[in-house]
Design a binder for these strands. Structure first.
Lengths: 340, 340
DNA sequence: ACCGACCATGGAAGCGCTTTCATAGGAACG
DNA sequence: CGTTCCTATGAAAGCGCTTCCATGGTCGGT
């Protein structure tokens, strides 16, 4: 009878740590040590191992490492969307800081959809990331529970979430709305209006905007709602809607620079004087806001900085540095330029 | 003597498949089957398992799954940069297609740096992704070797790489340069110039541009080189340089829309008539190109489509469908608008 | 020279899954 | 009714690492 050749779990065929060990004439454990804690190994041994690694082109299987050890060296990033968006900056900031520390980024986009967010988070958590960054509050309670149960450092960004899961790096969206409203009031605009999406951050900006207006004795005109994520086209459409209604509107606060610029461009096309006939303000202070002709009044927010600070926080939390949950408010700053 | 309580590999404390199995009164194997091949399990058993999963909030450890199985269900994406860039669209397209299929995206940015690319690719390959997408050709031969040795489906994008590692989804950057050059010639511009970065794609656009110009009996003016990734500011600076030199330049082809728009905006600021005094063309056909006043002449490239097609190709390759390496040329199309 | 301390290295036991292979019951068949 | 086949489930063996513990060799102190 022939021997049972039961090859259960399928070997990958790629060189393994054991292959390196054999070539270097040491044990597998020593190879692991050279790769992870080089100082714990004598110099000649270390060199022999490194040479063997080079010779056979060994690339450590981090999946196996993550399973055996406790750290996966993976950080998950969950954003609404990444194309043409401010969140791309945040991902960039996060990734810039983290890659140098040996972490890899797992990226996911929710598209502002609660269901997609939930399945996305489930999938990501299944990879056992060492930490997770997300934009704002979870879109559903289910996702929130999933996140809380994960027991890993989490940082929520882009808003000062009221009941955060863990850390927060953001700014007050209501305050952003407020500074724009106060600016409009000071400039003497009387018929002002908000344009934004239906997402939580947009709503918060609107709330702060409206509240400040009322505090100044004014009544904000009804807001114009556009789809999220906002595009130049949505900004243009919003402007058209406002113009078509033919009301007395004299100033518009757009929830994002992209929307504001879409509208500003439409004004140029139609020959509408900005700010003479209509004032426009945005939020984000993207490059384009500064470069536009005329340059756009906006609220400065550094998506890059949010990403960087989030990364730092996460790194500290993973290392066990710092005490409880941090709550970093980057603040808002109105940049007065030529469109108001 | 007390019993040896050697807890080697540290358990995570999170519920495991075995916990679900115990609660559902079945074996671990059955739980695995319910999760992966539900049809192979009898309905009542399946329901009992699902109920147990729900009860204890079990989230499968995909790391362990990847190690035991052969598939990691991870796709790696390597791009030069993601902030304010056309590559964000490609990542979005890739991710949109892949998330639905149960894949997770590992994102990495090279920043146009060969060293960073190499360490990034090493780290990603260490996660044993099922496939990998990268923009263009590897920045170094070392990275190329790493990639080839990985033995996974790879798709290179954004250019028709001459000696591809595997699949390609792109367009001819030289052809893009050519159509713009021919357009300039047809329009009667005689003192034309290229502005772009030092990366391979930019160089290819320049080469195609210059070649077509020479074919038409013209001599291209020396190109203006800007840093990669290009920004509005770089476009503006390039324009200033051209203007300061005071040559006879009457048309400029920018390697990307962002550069072109930066220059266009500077023209507006200086009151330079476009295309009267100077014609401007870009590449990418981003939203903004169409919305600009005047709208920008550009070469249409859909970053989103590149990402989607790349995803489809990778999915097919993973599943073993299709034969050899595909080579998809999405072609280029000049969009004549008002700046030329 | 002898002892304990210390340093470098190795052995063994998992991490939490998937994948054969085996097996217990039925259904199907004559 | 016995045999065959199929279906549903389980047992065991890893996937390629890291971690704990043990051990042999060196070295300084006396």
């Amino acid at each position: 009878m022939k021997p049972k050749t039961r090859t259960r779990a399928v070997p990958t065929g790629r060189p393994r740590m054991e292959d390196v060990a054999r070539l270097a004439g040491v044990s597998l454990v020593t190879v692991s040590r050279v790769l992870n804690t080089p100082d714990a190994v004598a110099a000649p041994t270390r060199q022999a191992v490194m040479e063997a690694v080079r010779r056979i082109g060994y690339v450590p299987n981090l999946t196996a490492g993550a399973l055996a050890g406790s750290r996966s060296r993976i950080i998950a990033a969950v954003v609404p969307t990444i194309a043409n968006s401010i969140f791309a900056d945040t991902v960039q900031g996060l990734s810039d800081r983290l890659e140098g520390e040996g972490y890899t980024i797992l990226l996911g986009q929710t598209g502002y959809d609660a269901g997609r967010e939930r399945s996305l988070v489930t999938a990501m958590l299944g990879r056992r990331p060492d930490a997770l960054m997300l934009v704002g509050a979870p879109l559903s309670a289910a996702t929130g529970r999933l996140l809380a149960a994960a027991k890993i450092p989490i940082v929520q960004t882009w808003e000062m979430v009221r009941r955060p899961i863990d850390h927060v790096v953001g700014f007050s969206n209501a305050a952003a709305g407020r500074v724009v409203a106060e600016h409009f009031v000071a400039r003497g605009y009387r018929h002002v209006r908000f344009v934004g999406g239906a997402d939580a951050r947009s709503k918060a900006r609107q709330a702060g905007f409206d509240a400040a207006l009322r505090a100044a004795g004014m009544t904000p005109l009804p807001a114009v709602t556009v789809p999220s994520p906002g595009t130049l086209g949505h900004g243009r459409d919003a402007l058209c809607r406002v113009l078509d209604e033919g009301g007395p509107t004299d100033a518009l606060f757009f929830s994002t620079d992209v929307l504001a610029i879409g509208a500003l461009l439409e004004c140029q096309r139609r020959g509408i004087a900005v700010p003479g006939r209509l004032a426009i303000a945005g939020l984000g202070d993207q490059d384009l806001a500064r470069e536009m002709v005329p340059p756009l009044t906006t609220v400065r927010i550094s998506g890059l900085e949010i990403g960087r600070r989030a990364a730092d926080l996460l790194l500290d939390a993973i290392a066990g540095r710092r005490g409880g949950a941090q709550r970093i408010d980057l603040g808002v700053q109105l940049i007065e330029r030529a469109t108001t």
